[in-house]
Design a protein around this nucleic acid. Structure first.
Length: 470
DNA sequence: TTTTGAGTTGTTCGA
DNA sequence: GTCGAACAACTCAAA
């Protein structure tokens, strides 16, 4: 018996239910198919995928890489290898659901045994239900219900009898996913180690060094207390079950960690909630989840959008975040909220502009998390931030980057300023600026909007939403 | 069906 | 400087 294992967002060997199933049946034929349909991958994602596939291929040298229409390719592959079964772990993006459903039906039509599994969530989106049987729209009761379910122990790496498909398959380098000429990804390999072993190492490093005090320190972009597992999770190099199981083990052994671990796992819970929402509300990436927000008077201003993208807004905390994103493919969670709030509330540009930019630049770009989080910040999402919660970029800086270390790192032209003015250089006196070598409008931009005025305008805009609601 | 309690992450103002 | 209240209802989920 030969089973094709179709790798997608589950680029690992351990706790991989599809792989385990295939191994039990007999010979395994592993394939990764680059689907040319669906939303094109962003630049940062392509870099990650390249590295992750290279890592998987080194663990599983028989892995075949194909590119094109998945059904066509799976048909050809099963003919050529005489495989009698195909299996995979599920994806939950609307495009993937439709695609997989059609492929499953078509392959079964041809007499193949086709099975799909849950490899990337603690619970399937349809398994967590309110008392009424519907989907949850509020995080807390969702997570309570999700946690109350039994969570399966992760699977070990199965003993494998692997066969490579002969004579077909692409060379990873031919996909041109890593930049050749201008290397915008320079230095990324020092920061990130895509692939299963890198993911496990990252988890252990976080548990060893970041977990203690996580509850509060995770809000500090100048510290190293967040897990940075998001890109690994997105590509399925590690599963939430593995994280859950490892974290619970630690909490049982070290009860003092219990609180921080629960806080950390609740972040995994937000990922689950995003997938739950995307599954039950597939228009989440495109449409306001609360339709009343269709009435919000968004602005349209490409100069402001570009200033935000490039980290040239004149607000150091915002600019530092946007530059961290551009330079490393990552942004600390606290700063994601500050920068997103700034785009949506201070600039009043539609959240979809931010969603698209993050999709292209984030290494952890993920349809469910990205859409749910942008809508959350904008106020139109599920369990969203109230409209009157408008982050003050200066206050956020003083609170969460009190030493200015984060800002100085990403906006080095401000590094000569002291902590009093580092988060609001435009409030500094001429002498202070001169002494620090800062020339506003030249070495660093003046603020593109006035905070108080922008805040007032954002609040006024919500009047239209309120009116649409009644 | 109705009622009730609760709801990630903030800011500003005035005492 | 510190603290509590206001911001604004509304929707959700369960009893």
């Amino acid at each position: 018996m030969k089973t094709i294992v179709w790798f997608r967002q589950d680029l690992r060997l351990s706790d991989n239910p599809a792989l385990a199933h295939a191994a039990e049946r007999g010979t395994v034929i592993p394939v990764y198919i680059l689907d040319v349909g669906g939303r094109p991958l962003g630049g940062a994602s392509r870099w990650w995928l390249h590295k992750s596939l290279a890592a998987l291929k080194s663990d599983l040298p028989q892995l075949t890489l194909l590119r094109g229409d998945p059904l066509e390719l799976l048909n050809r592959l099963s003919d050529q290898t005489n495989a009698d079964a195909v299996c995979w772990n599920r994806c939950y993006e609307p495009h993937a659901i439709a695609r997989d459903k059609a492929i499953k039906a078509a392959l079964r039509e041809r007499g193949l045994d086709v099975q799909s599994f849950n490899g990337s969530l603690l619970a399937e989106p349809w398994q967590v239900k309110t008392g009424q049987g519907g989907p949850f729209k509020v995080y807390s009761p969702f997570w309570r219900a999700a946690k109350a379910r039994a969570i399966a122990a992760p699977l070990a790496v199965p003993k494998l009898d692997v066969e490579a498909a002969a004579g077909i398959g692409d060379d990873l380098d031919d996909w041109n996913f890593v930049p050749s000429s201008s290397n915008w990804a320079e230095g990324w390999e020092d920061i990130w180690r895509p692939g299963e072993s890198g993911a496990q190492a990252r988890l252990e490093r976080f548990l060893d060094n970041g977990l203690a005090g996580y509850g509060t320190l995770r809000d500090r972009p100048d510290k190293a207390n967040v897990s940075r597992l998001s890109p690994h999770l997105h590509w399925g190099e590690i599963s939430p079950r593995q994280i859950w199981s490892r974290a619970q083990f630690l909490a049982d052994r070290e009860p003092t960690y219990r609180k921080d671990i629960d806080k950390f796992l609740s972040e995994i819970g937000w990922r689950e909630f995003s997938y739950h929402l995307l599954y039950h509300f597939p228009s989440l990436p495109e449409e306001n989840w609360r339709p009343a927000f269709d009435a919000y008077p968004w602005r349209d201003d490409s100069d402001d959008l570009e200033a935000w993208q490039k980290g040239q807004t004149g607000y150091p905390m915002v600019d530092a975040g946007m530059r961290e994103l551009w330079q490393t493919g990552y942004m600390h969670n606290r700063v994601r909220m500050v920068t997103a709030s700034f785009l949506v509330k201070h600039l009043r540009l539609h959240w979809s502009h931010g969603e698209a930019w993050f999709w292209d630049t984030l290494l952890d770009a993920d349809q469910a998390n990205n859409a749910a989080s942008w809508q959350w910040v904008a106020g139109c999402g599920a369990d969203a931030a109230p409209y009157f919660r408008i982050f003050n970029p200066m206050t956020q800086g003083e609170k969460f980057d009190p030493d200015g270390a984060y800002v100085r790192r990403w906006c080095p032209e401000l590094s000569g300023l002291d902590n009093k003015v580092i988060h609001a250089p435009f409030k500094a006196t001429e002498e202070v600026l001169r002494a620090a070598g800062v020339v506003l409008g030249s070495t660093y931009p003046r603020p593109i909007v006035d905070h108080a005025a922008a805040r007032a305008a954002a609040l006024a805009g919500y009047e239209a939403v309120k009116a649409a609601n009644t």
